[in-house]
Design a protein around this nucleic acid. Structure first.
Lengths: 351, 351
DNA sequence: CTACAAAATGTTACCGGTCACATCTGCGGT
DNA sequence: ACCGCAGATGTGACCGGTAACATTTTGTAG
């Protein structure tokens, strides 16, 4: 009675069943599934319906085997915060399993430009595409090498938009602008700023957004209230120490990321200042530390997971296209950020 | 001149080339690659050499297609710390790409036991194996459902060893024991302990290790110096507050994880205590917060990434075996932890 | 030394798609 | 009407492995 179920897995619907159901050949179904070959709209609709009814999902193994187009995509990183990394991975993995791509990971710490070139060239041989989170996406060496190998690349959150590189990011300028307005609305005018690491373009964008908002409100930017930081907790400690050691204290501190904001809170506490009554503190990124410290930080949420997923989608589309036509398009996705209001902001003391 | 390179990718070595090189049939090579069919040692060696010389790697797509044995393995989690999650993912992904398995992720937050059962049953239909990190691995509902579906499961860091479930973990008891000895060696005798969340078996193990080390040293455990915590920063704050609000202060605090240890440091600072001069503080897990706070925490490092990778390996082996024979074996891997000495421990003040 | 079971190896078909190419439409030009 | 061309669809072969079965070799008992 068993027909030919010998080597077949569970309920997996195959392309042949769909084809039969739709009354067309498997090849036509394949064409429809892969977007755009020459298929008549009527036929396409027919196939789509069959796909929907049977709940068909192409078998990734068969697909990549037949197409000889391994869908391995690499995600390389250098010592990011673990929070950032985990969100990145969750997002990328979601995208990968959705599209049945295989994700490979690589950590490239402390490489010289030459080493980066070599690694990139090497990588190019084994994967079909690369996702480049910061700060790697700022490396000219890697990008050029990868592009020379004609491998699609999508950068994440590269501050500056480059005409030759697809990118998924938030609008750092506008986000910082909004956050500054938020502080201004509470009545703050003596707002200190802790800058981010100078090797990341996003840092500059955030500072520009801060400056612009202040200028628009007619508030002058006091140079002494701007400190250089490097995104680390330690650097935040030093910057805050400098800021709160002055005679005229600021009423608010805008740190370029959450780690430095948390450090600022810690320094404030040590100096007997209550947050937010005596000092408002805001951060950027909405990493876990934002909700770990007390009071919880008002911050900007970057949807990193969604960005990674989106990057993966872009990459896969780009891979399929490039295998078809020769021209590559660069995309620039700007995704929405969110201003998360929590407990670290209040009106200034003697407003 | 191009022979038949039409549909072939780059340099990918196929099983046929290896077979030809070794002078055997592809099937024999396949048998060798898959471990243990009946192959003569001489032949095996022959094949292995060819594999090495040609640097052959089986094509995962072809393999899973032919075997109709999709190697999708699921990793499900509930709101773990992002640090933990990212290490977990890095490790699992490393293992997956190494073995050419596909990893799928799922977050099961706030599910009732019934919902867990349903989700598990559902999951069982689409994946070949499951990795279960804490605290999910403590759920009877999930485990039983998955086992009923005959899906291999590997738990990570499930404190209690269960005869019916493979597990990769560290020896929490011994780790806590070592840490306690470390404090004793510095001359501490009034050592406070902040317990972990009672729903995790590892918490109990850590406390037991602490108690045992104290007893062996002839130091009595003072009940007032043991506080219940819940692994969160907040709970650590409260526990430390209780501990440091007493008249006779402890000279050291052993927190069951880093978050609570960091909280303890924060409380100490707020009370004007210098760490480690006035108070030593140690944590557990070596999460990023351990190196974020100042002073950096002495703690126990759990090689989570390695554990995840190992879990994946176990799982894949288990999957292949179970498809061959019917009996399933349960394994219990105990991996080595490390005592990481940093700056939060010093001899007690007036020793 | 033969016979025969068990072990080692080879053969064939097939997994589920996609490629190159063959075939079949419909349409306009002359 | 006829031809031709381009777009839409179908036809086999094939991607790189592995399950099942066929075949050969090996070990060994009679």
């Amino acid at each position: 009675m068993v027909e030919r179920t010998v080597r077949r897995k569970g309920g997996a619907v195959t392309i042949h069943e769909v084809a039969h159901h739709a009354g067309v050949s498997p090849m036509t179904v394949s064409r429809v599934m892969n977007g755009n070959a020459n298929v008549r709209d009527v036929t396409r609709e027919l196939v789509m319906r069959a796909v929907r009814e049977l709940n068909y999902t192409p078998n990734p193994a068969a697909r990549s085997l037949a197409a000889a187009q391994g869908t391995r995509i690499a995600l390389i990183y250098t010592n990011p915060s673990s929070a950032y990394l985990s969100e990145l991975l969750v997002g990328a993995l979601a995208g990968a399993s959705h599209a049945a791509a295989q994700l490979v990971l690589d950590s490239w710490d402390d490489k010289s430009a030459a080493a980066e070139r070599a690694a990139a060239r090497n990588l190019a041989k084994s994967v079909a595409g690369v996702i480049l989170p910061p700060p790697l996406c700022e490396s000219r060496a890697i990008c050029s090498e990868l592009q020379q190998a004609k491998i699609p690349v999508v950068a994440i959150a590269s501050g500056r938009f480059r005409a030759d590189l697809s990118c998924v990011r938030i609008d750092d300028f506008r986000a910082a602008h909004e956050m500054t307005e938020h502080l201004l609305e509470h009545g703050h005018t003596r707002i200190a700023f802790i800058k981010g690491h100078p090797n990341q373009t996003a840092s500059a964008r955030r500072f520009e957004g801060f400056q612009a908002a202040l200028q628009e409100a007619g508030v002058s930017v006091e140079n002494a209230l701007v400190q250089q930081g490097y995104f680390s907790y330690r650097s935040g400690l030093e910057a805050a120490e400098a800021l709160l050691g002055r005679k005229r204290l600021p009423t608010a501190i805008f740190a370029s990321n959450d780690d430095m904001a948390a450090a600022a809170i810690s320094v404030a506490h040590r100096r007997g200042l209550d947050v937010p009554r005596d000092l408002s503190v805001v951060g950027f990124d909405d990493t876990p530390i934002a909700t770990t410290v007390w009071p919880e930080l008002t911050t900007i949420r970057q949807p990193i997971a969604a960005m990674a997923e989106s990057a993966l989608g872009l990459l896969l589309r780009s891979i399929r296209q490039s295998s078809a036509s020769e021209n590559r398009v660069v995309a620039d996705h700007v995704v929405a950020h969110t201003l998360v209001k929590r407990d670290s902001v209040a009106p200034p003391r003697k407003a």
